[in-house]
Design a protein around this nucleic acid. Sequence first.
DNA 1: CGTACTTTTGAATCGCATCAAATCTGGTGG
DNA 2: CCACCAGATTTGATGCGATTCAAAAGTACG
Lengths: 206, 206
Amino acid sequence: MTDPADKRLPAPLRKLLPAELQALCAVAPCTRGELLFAQGKKPTRMLYVTAGEVVLQRMGRQGESVVLQRSRHGFIGEASLDSARYHCDALVITSGAVIAIPMDAIKRSLAADSAFASRWIAMLNHEVKRLRAQCERLSLRGVKERLLHLIETEGGEGRLPLGSGLKSMAAELGVTHEALYRAVAELEKHGRLRRRENCLVVVGGV
Amino acid sequence: MTDPADKRLPAPLRKLLPAELQALCAVAPCTRGELLFAQGKKPTRMLYVTAGEVVLQRMGRQGESVVLQRSRHGFIGEASLDSARYHCDALVITSGAVIAIPMDAIKRSLAADSAFASRWIAMLNHEVKRLRAQCERLSLRGVKERLLHLIETEGGEGRLPLGSGLKSMAAELGVTHEALYRAVAELEKHGRLRRRENCLVVVGGV
DNA sequence: CGTACTTTTGAATCGCATCAAATCTGGTGG
DNA sequence: CCACCAGATTTGATGCGATTCAAAAGTACG
């Protein structure tokens, strides 16, 4: 059904990118601790995570890191298309792989291929909605509510895969890992949540 | 210098929209308490706030409202371009005016005019960055830090205009209005902040 | 002039951050 | 294989800061 040459690219990219860009995609492994790009650097490649886990983070004035996004599958820094510099760091939390696409090739294709531009706009629209949901989540008081909101919005069917444990998730929720561990324990005790095969599962459908 | 017919449109829209869409723009007043659109409704017009203040909000399960965005000048619900339904409410907080553009006309222009599509993508990129900054802000502990972050990122030159008072701002910061009033008072007492002509001004440029 | 809203201050309570420490885990090298 | 280490997980105690509830004073607007 699918061309063997396409097998290296995940389905979302095959649907999104025109053929000439798919040919330019370069898969590369990335290892824990690696900095895919750094704040202030000039964007030259658009990156797409296919395996492992990457976080976008920015340093506060006290040197504390604030996690802006956690990605296990999808573009990172897609809004840097027309930026002169990155405004945050991309750090690999769990080793995996990324696909790199030359930024200028994307720009050329967007200008020439209006159907591609429409799909790109749809992707950005989706990202905007995801970010609004994250803002909504961070506005909730209470770790438990934030956690349940995360599972509902990001998980499918009340299931959320835990990539590299709860710790990086805690940062995304804007709470300490201790608080998150306690919240998970309490929700499990009350039977509202279960941990199964590296997933969090909400029990009472509500 | 400028054509009299263009005077009704703000500069950002004149720069963004192609002529045929500018001709379709309809300015309409909106009054406090008005619901510009409601969650679940089908988007037919793209809205741009030119005066007053509008908030995007969603109701929590306890009936408490969570503010996703506060807009005094710019598009609202721009990510609903390809959505079947709105995912939040748009409520007018301070009476003003909005510009409405037919959604299908925008879609047609985006498909036909690749330069316009590029400008639209740039606008979405900007919005994504703004939302990431908001997530970063909501991850900060302490009302004072959030407030200073807001003034730094959204205000120009350390000045942030207060549209309709601090109360709607408190919701955007994810804190109670009491906490925000106290934070402002304390920052003023320590000389780090001043209130001037309906603006918040950071004193010690950091 | 009255009504509705914002602004302001106060007191009590609660949840989370913080600091600390023990256990568990997977992976590395001897 | 075992010792060992780094990091994740878990539990405990304490304090701070925000929420919450309450109430008063200021302010805009019809």
